[in-house]
Each structure stands twice: as C-alpha cells, then as structure tokens.
C-alpha cells in the first residue's frame, strides 16, 4: 500500500475573497517536492474528503530555486516550493501564499510590489548605448566573490514576507532591493552612478526604515548576507548624507 501525504492548502478564490483551508492526500513517491504535489492536484483536483474541487493555482518557472516565482509559506516558513522536499518536511504539510502581497488566486500572488521596489531604486547598471561600449572594467576576484553572492537574489519575496517593517502600514521597500543597490554601487561600472544609487534608498521607505529584526537573513533561500548589506548601506547612506550636506 502506498503511503499518502496530507497537504493543507490555504486557498482564496480571488483578490479580496475570504481565505479557506482545503486538504489533499497525495501519493508519496521518492524525491517528492511541494511543486510535484501541487501538480498532482492539478491533474486530479479531488480533496481529502473525496470531493471534486478546483485545481490549486500557484506560480512557478525554473523548478531549481533560481527564478523565485514559487515562493510560498511552507510549514510557517517562506521558501521556494521547488526546493521544499517532502522527505525533509514535517507532516501534514501546510502551504499558504505570501501574506504581504495581493493574492490573485490561491498561492499565486501579484509580485509587482517587489519589482516596483527595484524600479524605485534603479537596481541596474545603465550600459545601453548607440554604439559598442567595449569590455567592462576588470574587478578583483575577492570582490567578485562576495558580489556574486548578492547577485543570486531572485526577488522571491521571502525576506519581505518575514520582515515586520514590510507591510501595507509602511513604505519600506524591503531588504532585497537595498541589497541590490549595494551590489550595483560596488560593481566597477555601477560605481559611476554610486551617489545616485545611494540617494535612491535615502527617502521614505528606504534604508532608514530597516528595524533590524534580521528575519530576512534567516529565511533567505539563497543565504544572501542581507543584514550585512543593510548595515553597510546604512554606513554608505550616512556618508552620503554628510557629503551632500557639507560639500558645497
């Protein structure tokens, strides 16, 4: 007889609709992950009571913890569903959508708030031109190493989900966007726009709104040193503030 895993899903039929819990029994197989369980429900949308129901909606792309799309709260912790292996989870498994974002349906959330934060701080390097700009400048390998770690951010939203200062009550843009500013202002090409990048996180909702609860660094699935980024950007913002106020 095959083992059956109980999956509890917090569902919601649309934005603003009342949430409800639905349970499913999924047949266990080796290396099963949460995404595969949801795919099972998609193929056969029958709940644990044997009633026919609508398939659970969620988002996913890469299935290898690179894209960030399948972030959800699994057993109370925000993480990627693709890397959540059933063998390593306590049962029954509980999945909920990230609570800090608008829920489109079930586990599928509107991620625009995360992308808007990146747009607000210009988390990129403007290298587009009308002609070939040639090779970028070289950088020391030691610096490339720690910057590579920051570049692994996939804007999944786990840090924002766990942050007590990230909510509809405050404008805080969250740890991820601030860490991205640290990445691009240290990039050899991005350094040319260093001051503008720091300016972008000194306003309302910027670095000063970090409350140092440090949940972000604990839940980050990519183990990005977010609290180091936040403290470092605190230092950079202060230097910039004094420089802006005194050097004229």
């Amino acid at each position: 007889m095959a083992e059956v895993i109980r999956l509890r899903v917090k569902r919601q039929d649309g934005p603003g609709a009342a949430p409800y819990w639905e349970e499913f029994d999924i047949k266990y197989r080796a290396n099963l992950n949460v995404i595969a369980m949801l795919q099972d429900i998609q193929q056969n949308p029958v709940n644990a009571k044997g009633q026919k129901t609508t398939p659970v909606v969620w988002g996913c792309n890469c299935l290898e913890e690179i894209c960030g799309e399948c972030a959800m709260v699994i057993n109370g912790t925000p993480r990627q569903a693709c890397s959540a292996l059933v063998d390593k989870l306590t049962k029954p498994i509980t999945v909920e959508p990230l609570s800090k974002f608008t829920i489109i349906r079930d586990l599928y959330i509107d991620r625009a708030k995360l992308f808007n934060a990146l747009k607000k701080v210009n988390a990129w390097i403007p290298i587009d031109g009308t002609y070939d700009l040639g090779q970028g400048p070289k950088q020391p390998p030691a610096k490339a190493d720690w910057m590579y770690k920051l570049s692994q951010c996939m804007t999944c939203g786990c840090c924002a989900e766990s942050c007590p200062n990230y909510s509809d009550k405050s404008d805080f843009i969250g740890p991820a966007a601030i860490s991205q500013v640290r990445l691009f202002m240290n990039h050899p090409t991005g350094q040319l726009h260093r001051d503008e990048l720091v300016d972008n996180i000194m306003g309302n909702g910027g670095i000063a709104d970090c409350g140092k609860s440090q949940n972000c660094v604990r839940v980050c699935p990519k183990e990005i040193p977010l609290t180091t980024s936040l403290a470092d950007m605190n230092r950079e913002a202060l230097k910039r503030w004094f420089s802006r106020g005194l050097r004229f």
């Binding site: 766990s162 007590p164 200062n165 009550k169 405050s170 140092k212 440090q214 949940n215």
Partner: peptide, 22 residues
Amino acid sequence: WIVYVAKNNALRYTYWRNWAFY
C-alpha cells in the same frame, strides 16, 4: 510612530533578534 508601523511577528519567526525587535 515606529512602534505603530511594525507588524510584529515574533510568534511566527521566533529568532532571538526578532524577539529583541519586539
């Protein structure tokens, strides 16, 4: 005001730093 804007979650994320925040 700072106390007001926080949505405390120390019971969900029980790390000591989060408790210290609370």
